[in-house]
Amino acid sequence: MFTAIGLTHYLLLAAMLFCIGLWVMASKRNAIGVLIGVELILNASNINLLAFARYSTGGMNGHLIALFVIVLAAAEAAIAIAIVVNLYKNFMSVDVDKAATMKN
């Protein structure tokens, strides 16, 4: 288990990163913190894709899909940061809980 590295190792690493990403998203109050959690999860899926490409089926397709995931992650980060900055201009805070004016 410790002396030979295979597909499972990478998958478990990715799963751990996925869970930590969820943890970050669930526990952070700061909008940027939540965004960081999203990025961690996207990294986890990229590790999955490339591990499958290396050890299992998929080959080139895994690489290309991972490439598009990176593009999407960059796009999402850009728009999210812009919205966070906009939130800060309006509320002078990036605390998600503080921005709660709308009620049922």
Binding site: M1, F2, T3, A4, I5, G6, L7, T8, H9, Y55, S56
Partner: peptide
């Protein structure tokens, strides 16, 4: 577990 045997020491 799906372990591929051929991985060198440095890789590990």
């Amino acid at each position: 577990a799906a372990i591929v045997p051929a991985s060198g020491p440095l890789e590990v």
